[in-house]
Design a protein around this nucleic acid. Structure first.
Lengths: 275, 275
DNA sequence: AACGATATGAAAAAAAACTCCAAAACTGAA
DNA sequence: TTCAGTTTTGGAGTTTTTTTTCATATCGTT
């Protein structure tokens, strides 16, 4: 919560403008070196300008470069333990270790207040639609399933056309959850825009904080963007999304404890389908 | 080590010259306030001069005021950290920690040889069917998606009746993957039995090693069964299943590296669906 | 009191941080 | 394609902060 600087930086880096992205990469590559640099030096090393570094700091929510460096110093001071662990001897171990880092980062990225707000909206919704395509369809399905388990009807839409149609009929009581790892999937943004224009409350779940999807949402929940972006990062980013889903569901049962009763009731209903 | 700076400062404060001692006292009284002050402000507040503050920093072994502030920030951060650890962790933190344990356990449970065998079978299969119901449907869908990504066609069946029908038409080249967390779901076992009787190779994924499903399979892959069985355990056991799926897919690309080419090709195909 | 050594702060100099603005790059529409 | 409007960007200037310099004050010793 307090020490989410590096993680949120990585989540934001992807959708920054070129100059800002260069600054972000430079900082991420050598965070400790940044501490010893002046704004002029960092501008030079990253191939941008002082003004861009300044903008970078502001965008991250700091009052200026000084403020940013102070926060970074704090982060690095506590971060020393996270660096040692991990002797990745085989593929699966490596997968597990990156997944763990990603989960921890996501835990820090999750804004508790936003989870509470989102949960409230979901509980109060007359209709809940979950949309995700490709890999994100899995997350959407998981959310819909979990909500059904606590007696809150919702459906997952894995088809872009269906989702667009559904979004088109959204009303003010509708909550539309849109999931996209990159946050740049055209269909996802379209669904978000459309649902919002119809008066629905739109919750975005993504691994990128600065993305078209997030810009189009009423509320955004960000999962960690793992260091290894290609194949190796798919699993960590996926389970980080699922963590957010579970956080939402946990919060919903906390806000409305009688949902736990629903949970055991749904368990009863399916018990005759087991040995 | 933890309080190196503050401690040595307090120790040194006694026999400093008056002006420097005032600076030291001011810093010790409000270390966190110092972080937000400029050298001029600190000089003013401590009733000394900028030059004295400068000398103070140098005497402590720092190159200047900035350097001192950075070190102080780190020190205070570790303090905050220590306080955080003592405080009761919230729901999300607890979720993450149990998930981590579960992932590590699953990594231990995964029999590498079985993963290799299963991957071989999947690669050689003429048809791959993935079946999972309720929460396990998510895992099935994830597996089907990932296999499609590496150019190996497979489909997920989330409907028990459809799955039974599909299993009934299985042949010797068919690989049937059946997922059930408890391993006791009637429909899952039925699908496994039926597919096997038709000559299919049946791979079971479950969180229970001694279960009807596992007994009915040719090969079993076991994910960890977390201690907390109710709500708290659902998330860990789910992502442990996904870990197994990713382990399978990683092994498949290892055995058949040209699959990686397929991966980037599928990425290209969908790239025009992004901004 | 005179001397030398140390301590101190005012002010100048240097550096760093921050702001502003016009040029460049990019966007989408005609 | 051109063109208008927007966004992005870095240069140049301004302000603030840090650092150095140096003259003066202070103190202990003889």
């Amino acid at each position: 919560m307090t020490h989410a600087l590096i993680a949120s930086l990585r989540a934001a880096a992807g959708d920054m403008t070129p100059a800002l992205a260069r600054v972000a990469e430079t900082v991420l590559a050598q965070p400790d070196a940044t501490l010893r640099q002046s704004i002029t030096e960092l501008a030079e090393v990253s191939g941008s300008s002082e003004a861009s570094v300044m903008r970078f700091c502001r965008d991250q929510g700091f009052s200026g470069f000084q403020d940013f460096k102070l926060a970074l110093a704090k982060e690095l001071a506590t971060d020393e333990r996270a660096r040692d662990i991990g002797s990745p001897s085989d593929d699966i171990q490596r997968l597990v270790e990156t997944a763990i880092i990603s989960l921890r980062e996501t835990e820090q990225l999750i804004v508790r207040k936003d989870v509470a707000t989102a949960s409230r909206k979901l509980l109060d919704a007359s209709v809940v639609e979950c949309f995700g395509i490709a890999a994100s369809a899995v997350t959407a399905q998981y959310l819909a399933y979990k909500m059904t388990r606590i007696g809150k009807f919702s459906r997952a839409l894995g088809d872009a056309h269906l989702a667009v149609m559904a979004a088109g009929t959204a009303q003010s009581g509708t909550v539309q959850v849109v999931i996209s790892s990159s946050g740049s999937t055209i269909d996802a943004v379209r669904v978000a825009d459309l649902a919002r224009s119809k008066g629905a409350f739109v919750i975005g779940i993504s691994n990128r904080s600065k993305s078209p999807l997030i810009a189009a949402c009423d509320l955004a929940l960000i999962a960690s963007w793992p260091e290894t972006p290609l194949t190796g990062g798919a699993f960590p980013s996926k389970i980080s999304q699922l963590l957010i889903v579970d956080a939402l569901v946990a919060e919903m049962t906390r806000q409305d404890p009688k949902r736990l009763v629903e949970l055991s009731r749904t368990a009863e209903v399916v018990s005759d389908r087991s040995f």
